[in-house]
Design a protein around this nucleic acid. Structure first.
Lengths: 294, 294
DNA sequence: TCCGATGTACTCATTCCGAGTATAAACTGG
DNA sequence: CCAGTTTATACTCGGAATGAGTACATCGGA
């Protein structure tokens, strides 16, 4: 991004899925999210960011959504000092792209989410890191029942279920407990970038449940298993195959292309495509109010 | 708010429910949402806004959530001209308060949402305004099947169901079709304030389904019917009484105070209170992924 | 004392969801 | 070419949640 006197900074969480891994675009060897000043020459925030991303990656951004706006003083509660840029506004966005090969000068790299948040990947087993974290948080909560309740709820301790959407809240609790700087608990990032990434992951994990955004991450045509693997990568959970397929075709979101996948190891699978012009789509039923007739 | 050279402006959608009407705090005779510059003297955006609101209303804000951040050029697509303040950032918030009597100098007024969006109140009947709007939109869509699909989906035409959450998208479609300036379609506001209000209503209508924010609008103790009437006011829908009650006590969110309501016309009702220290609460079941065992 | 309004406890059918089973069709290594 | 592995796809079945409706209780007031 060209520099200049800018009233605001834009920060992007750019996500893609490849090799069954959810990935995020980073700069500086995985230490920073892409960011730059808001250019008033463009028409709007969205357009400004979209243009910059497409210049950087060589790919169009399928989906772009605003995440959160911070003031500088929101951003790093550790250092109480006032910087020269005090009062600057940072606006963060979540963007989804289909491919991850950057056209840049080799600087951008796509890291797996789970290298920053190793405790969030529950696809194969409960991560060792999570066990250690809950142990340490147990000590931190000690005789404080309120802390204990928060830890149990956020990290699925005891009979509580693991809720994959609470990425941000888990990170913030770990921050409070002083665990985020431990190197075994994920790759560090500069400033508050890891927290912004957590915000994006939380948002996306929630969104795939009631909106068909997953398809923004899929190629033109795909098999049902590929779709399932993508959802699993994003949510960090393993899904039940027959039930997943049932839900997908109940939603009526995809249609058969007529073609079959070339052998990926087993029996060839049908190739599907996303039904365009489906704007009324909701992935799952969505919450309901108990309506009255009439 | 004191004026000054500010990098950003804060705008608040302050909501309350009284007399079975969802209300929003306005200035200038209902023409503007409260707003002011972001004061860097405070610690963060949230705190800055919270302090200002409490000074204005004399009441604490129970719940405060960021809505959306606009650049000036996002804000009024009609006038293409560049103003002196081009590039200014506006950050909007949704706040919930329990009472609506302003301590101010008589300037703030609490108007019903539905005076700005008369077509959004479906509690008693389908509003006449909605019928006229869909008629006009039918003409606007004319021979364009894509437009027709959008209109049908957003406004519940034909066999499509009315979706109360789509307040913002409906308003934006009406804007596109040139209907928002018609005086019979709701009270006007200055600039894009009506669109920001629509954003807040959309967010709140979605939120009450999976989060216990409604209780931020309720008094200390309340009857089940009062709670139902509040949800109905917010959603603009009429709910099924027995099923509403079933859901509420399945969620285990409230507890009996032991007291009874003084006669409100019929048999006295139990008074309940919100169970504090319920952070794991979700109003409804929430969408689900088809999980796999172990 | 009856009526209207509200409060509260049920029933019943349908749909949705979690869990599991069974079979089909490819590839692989001996 | 046969056995075993991997993936694809079609079912079944029970339990939970949801939509819709019924029955009855208890108050104030005409």
């Amino acid at each position: 991004m060209p520099t200049g006197l800018a009233p605001a900074e834009l920060i992007a969480v750019l996500a893609a899925v490849t090799d069954d891994q959810p990935r995020v675009m980073t700069l500086r060897g995985g230490e920073a999210l892409p960011s730059g000043p808001f250019e008033t020459s463009h028409r709007s925030l969205q357009q400004s960011l979209r243009a910059w991303i497409e210049r950087q990656t060589g790919h169009p951004v399928g989906y772009l959504e605003q995440l959160y706006t911070f003031a500088d003083k929101d951003r790093d509660p550790r250092s109480g000092e006032l910087t020269e840029e005090a009062g600057r506004i940072s606006i963060s966005y979540l963007g989804l792209v289909r491919e991850q090969d950057a056209a840049g000068i080799g600087r951008p790299a796509w890291y797996s989410w789970y290298s920053f948040f190793p405790w969030e990947d529950h696809r194969d087993r409960v991560p060792d890191e999570l066990v250690e974290i809950t142990d340490r948080l147990g000590v931190w909560a000690q005789d404080d029942p309120v802390r204990h309740q928060r830890v149990d709820y956020l990290f699925g301790v005891g009979d509580k279920a693991w809720n994959e959407e609470l990425v941000l809240q888990r990170y913030e609790l770990m921050y409070e407990a002083g665990l985020v700087d431990a190197p075994q608990f994920g790759r560090p990032m500069q400033g508050d970038n890891r927290r912004i990434l957590a915000t994006g992951i939380s948002r996306l994990r929630a969104k795939i449940k009631y909106s068909p955004v997953v398809f923004e991450l899929m190629p033109e045509s795909f098999t049902l298993l590929q779709l399932q693997r993508t959802v699993e990568a994003l949510s960090g959970l393993r899904l039940h195959k027959p039930n997943f397929r049932r839900q997908i075709d109940q939603q009526n979101l995809i249609e058969d292309t007529g073609e079959m996948s070339s052998g990926t190891g087993g029996r060839p699978a049908r190739l599907f495509r996303f039904r365009t012009a489906i704007l009324e789509a909701r992935m799952l039923s969505g919450a309901r109010l108990p309506l009255s007739r009439s």
